[in-house]
Every structure is written in C-alpha cells, then in structure tokens.
Design a protein around this nucleic acid. Structure first.
Lengths: 342, 342
DNA sequence: CTTAGCACTCAAAGAGAATGAGTGCTAACG
DNA sequence: CGTTAGCACTCATTCTCTTTGAGTGCTAAG
C-alpha cells in the first residue's frame, strides 16, 4: 500500500465527509499531485482492495466501511481546537446542575445540537461504584419501595409487591442486614453466588425477605443507564434508512450490548462492528469520563459514517475532559483542590 | 341543514377515513340515493358552509375541521364491540403488573399498536391524590434526597444540594414537621400561600430548612406525569408534516397544557382546538379512568384527524373501563369486593 | 509509470403527452 | 322546481423521451 494510495484514500474520505457526494478523480487532483487518469487508476485499485466503492458505473467513489476504518485508525489528522472553539464549547457546558447525571446529560445534549448527531450517555455505575444506601419503605398493603443510592449519586427506586406484609421485626432485621452486607459493596461484586450465600445467611428470615434481596439484585442490574439525547437528529440525517431509525426509536435497549467497551478509552465503531445495533451506515464515537481518576461513564455521538471525525473527536474529548474535572472533588468556596482521593 | 346534506357529509367522512383520498360524488352514490350531479350540488353547498374542502379544482372533497367536529358530535355512529373484539382487547391488557402506572402504560402501548396511533397516559396524581410519605435522606456532603410517595403509589425522588449540612437535630425536626403538616395533604391543596405559612411556622429552623420545602413544592408540581408511547406511529403516518412531528418529539412538554380537561370525560379534540400543541391535522381522543370511583388519570390516542372514531372510541372506553376495574380495590385471594371505600 | 484523449455509461432533471378522476354548468325531464 | 344526464373543462399523476453532465475505463503516446 504505497503512500500515494493512502493520500488518495484520505482525500476521498475528507471530501466525501464534506460534500456527501461520490468523489470523482478531478476533485482529488486538488489534494494529490497527479493527473486525473493516474488517480482513476489508483482508485480502481483501492476499489479492488475494498476501500472504496462506486454507487454505479459512472459515479465517483465512496469510502467503504473498511476505508473509514483505515482512515480513522491511521490516516486522519485530528484538528487542534482553537481558542475560539474552546470558548464556544465552554459556553455550551452548563455551570448549574444538581446531579452528575444531570450535568452530563445537558452537556451531551448541547454536543448533539452542535454536531447534529444523537448523543448517548452511559453510566458506569454498576462497574465502578459502591452502594451507599439501601432502604426499604412500606407504602401500602404488601407494597414496599426499595430505595438505592450509590456512591456516585445515582438514585433508583423500585416498587415491589410481596406475598405477605412484613413485621416491624422483619423490617428492622433487613435494615441491619443491608447495612452490614450490602452497604459499601461494589455493585459489580454482587455476583449471584454471593447473593445466594447472603440469602442463606438470613436464616429464619430467608423465606419472607429473599424476594426483597432478589429485587435489589434486579435493581443493581438495571443501574447501568444508557440515555439518548436528540434522537431526532437521526431522523433528519438523510444517510439513514428512515424505517431503521424509527424501529430504533421504539426499542433502544440494543445499545446496552456494547456499552462496557466504551469505558476503556476513545472508540470509533462502525455499524458493521456493532452487532445488535443495526442502523446501517452509522458510526458511534465514544469517550469515557472519570471522577477522581476512576471511570464514571462515557459520552458518545451516534451519526452517519460520514462524520467529521477530525473535528468531532476533539470536541468529544474536550467535553469528557471538562466533565471529568467538574465532577471530580474540586475546590468549592475556596477549598484546596484534592484529586485522587477516594 | 337538511337531512340529505348530513347524510352526504357523513358519507364523505366515513369514506375519507377509510381511503384517505379525496371523495368524489360517484363514491357517495353508494351511500346516498341520488345522482352524482345532485350530490355534487349538495357538496358544493357543504363546501360553501365550511364543512368540506377541495385540495384542488378537479379533486374530490375532504372534510374540514368543522366537518369532523359535526361528524364526531352528532353524526357518527359508534360501533358496538363484538364479543370477539372484546376478547382481542382483553388479551391485550396485561395481567401482570406492579404499579398502576405500569399497568396503564403497558395497556396504552398495546392500544397504540392496535390503532397505529401514539398513546398518552396522563396521571391525575396532583389533582386527586394525597401525600402518604415524604422522607429526606442525607447522601453526601450537603446532598439530600427527597423521597415522596403518594396515595396512588406514585414515587418520586429528587436530589437537592443545600448551602449547609443539616444537623441530626434539624433532620429530626423536619421529619416531624413533614409528618404533621404534609402527610395526608392532598397535593392539589398545597397552595403557595399555605406553604409560605408553613415555612414561617418553622421558626428558627426556617433559614436552613426552607430550601427543602421549596424543593418539595417543586416536586409536587412535577408530579403530574404525562407519558407518550409509540411516538413512532406519528412518524409513519403520512397525514402529518414530518418536521412538525420531529420537533414535537424533541419537546413534548406541550401536551401538559390541556391535560386537566381530559379527566372530566370522553373528549375528542382537533388540532385547531388544542393551542400549544401544534401538529396540524391531528386529533386526540381521551378518556379518564378511575380508582374506587375517583378519577385517577386519563388515557388518550393521538392520531391524524382521519381517525376511525367509530371504532377507536369504543376501544378506548373499553380499556379505561377495564383499567378502572383492575386498579380499584378488588377481591384478591378470595376477599370480598369492597368498592367506594377510601 | 504517467497522462492526454476519447468513447462510453448512467443518474438526474426536464419537457411533453396521455390518462382519468372529478368538477361545474346547462338544459331537459317529471 | 328539484333532479339528473350530458358535456366541456381542470389538473394531479404517470409515463416516455430527451438532454445534460459528471465520471469512468481504456488506449496510445510521452
């Protein structure tokens, strides 16, 4: 794979990202010093190798998935953010917020608006945070609310209906039981086996209380929230098949499948790589953010493959950087900054 | 307005609901005993009176909003549900559910699928239910979770960040304060004036605790949930302007405006009547459901004006009837039925 | 190996022409 | 006088046919 071919491929992708039209040999001449005939020959080879394709015989070339992959991994040059861009991005990050989730969602919404993509926020709660409180609150005949709060501030409640009413005694036992055995546990470490051991340790209380334990287990599994903002941007993007988008809107659970990967660093994934998630011609960029040095979640953009990676990746990383700063324990009201504490 | 005109108008609407195409005079001949020329003359008059309109000179007629209004109010004959229809509808209502909200949402989803409309569920919580529990739970530096549970089983939590940490003493005071002054209150009766009086009654605690009170007030205002299911059905309906739908998806808050009316009985509203809610050519059918004889919420369908009212209204009423039965205190495990108790 | 030149391809856009569903109007009819 | 048959007219839709032009592959000369 010689240098000129790579240059041509880069030029095709760059151009296609801007115009959205198949790129012809003449357009490439502006980027590569060679005649259109030479470029055509090279493009024909690139097509044979699977990096480009033609919508029809007499059209220009369009990058294939393989072409994008190479482009993103090795060819693309990321833009450096200018000061004015940074100012613009800064202005988009909300200064007022209550929960971290709140901050991240608002920021992602702004990013979605800017990039005309849909934005995803994945919460790393189950992987990286610990249970700080579990409460069971009676709320009607046989109805109980379980309230769970985790170290990163996520709060969930769940109603559950039991077969019997619990006695005061049982409730108190459970309260203590939870304090001793669940509080302080990392959610990720609550394996089925561990929970079974716990349940057995409850002795005579097991019968009546084990449904609560299993509800709590369910809650921990549902803790990993994945929210999507500005899905409508997918609808207005003409690179997509409308019907696919519509059925995606109806069941977006599919996204949860490959979320775990996103916490490890910057990722660019293309639709052929994300099985289960089936919007053809789409790509997802994700970047993790952290709190006090520990992964706290990931922010992502869903858009067409024809995405301005060189521009948007720096945007995304700038955002996750800022978010990490903001949610980490920072000096407030004049306190000293103290990072990397637990 | 003579009888034949009304028959012709009815025929136009009936026909248009089925075909979606402008209705010509010949098609009407199947419904009304008269020649096409006579019908044309009558239709010309109906057009002058504003009940019909022509997309263009050489097309058939389409009902106007005024035409639909008359049709729905006075002309339409509602279908009687057959036994097999009832069976079908019964099969669509979930037998397993935890909360009432859960039941209603699942049912509305099924109804949306059946009718190819979007479904709305409006919760009457703030109007008709009482606070059964408010708890304040500390969850980090200056962070507190307020948990609120109402008599109909709605649960909300809200994180709030205070300026100061609260002492044990303050928390206990607030707990008692809430028990005495908020528990048992109807949410609707929490006027700003009442709350101000409450706040003043807190005396020396006022300074530190009033932010909590105002957060609780905010929560009560956010209690009225309106959820929409199967919005995608709006997208696939060709009677709508796609862009309008897309911008509706982005901010569906607009629905909250006229929700209160829906609790009073069956309503059919057309887009010109629902200001704030601006999907042209749309209509909304809503019907309330109740718990032990008291209004608990409303279920609705959003679709094009060209909706099969004669069929869908009975569906909707059947559903709300069933839901009312299910959520009212019924005999369980062989207990006797006891309606109209509080 | 590179490139100028040329014949060829094919989607897209535009111009008529044909189609047909539907109308309004007029004049005859009972 | 209301009803209706008949007719000329309208106009969105569909189809075919042509033109356009961007882009290609191939060939032969540099």
């Amino acid at each position: 794979m010689d240098d000129r071919k790579l240059k041509i491929l880069t030029a095709v992708v760059d151009e296609y990202i801007v115009t959205g039209e198949p790129v012809g040999s003449k357009a490439i001449m502006a980027h590569v010093k060679a005649s259109s005939a030479t470029i055509r020959n090279e493009m024909a080879e690139l097509e044979k190798q699977g990096y480009l394709e033609q919508p029809h015989t007499s059209a220009g070339r369009v990058p294939t998935y393989k072409g994008y992959r190479l482009y993103v991994d090795r060819l693309m040059e990321q833009n450096q953010l200018t000061d004015s861009e940074k100012d613009m991005l800064d202005a988009m990050i909300p200064q007022e917020y209550v929960t971290e989730q709140d901050l991240v969602e608002k920021a992602s919404m702004a990013l979605a608006d800017l990039t005309k993509c849909a934005a995803v926020v994945a919460n790393a709660t189950p992987k990286f945070s610990i249970i700080s409180k579990v409460e069971v609150i009676p709320t009607g005949k046989r109805m109980y609310v379980i309230l769970m709060i985790t170290s990163n501030g996520a709060i969930r409640n769940k109603v559950c209906r039991l077969e019997f009413d619990l006695s005061q005694d049982q409730l108190e036992f459970f309260d203590n039981f939870v304090k001793q055995n669940l509080n302080g546990m990392s959610i990720d470490s609550l394996s089925d086996a561990y929970v079974e051991k716990l349940t057995e340790a409850m002795g005579t209380y097991m019968m009546s209380l084990s449904p609560l334990v299993s509800e709590i287990m369910k809650m921990t599994k549902e803790m990993s929230s994945v929210t999507i903002q500005r899905q409508s941007n997918l609808l207005t993007c003409k690179d997509f098949n409308q019907n696919e988008i519509i059925s995606f809107l109806d069941n977006q659970k599919v996204l949860k499948g490959f979320i775990d990967e996103t916490f490890s660093g910057l990722h660019v994934m293309f639709s052929p790589e994300t099985d289960g998630f089936v919007i053809h011609n789409s790509s997802i960029i994700t970047a993790p953010f952290s709190k006090d040095g520990k992964t706290a979640g990931a922010l992502g953009l869903i858009g067409p493959m024809r995405l301005d990676y060189a521009k948007f990746i720096p945007y995304l990383e700038y955002f996750t950087g800022k978010i990490s700063e903001m949610i980490s324990e920072e000096p407030q009201d004049g306190e000293k900054e103290s990072k990397d504490e637990n």
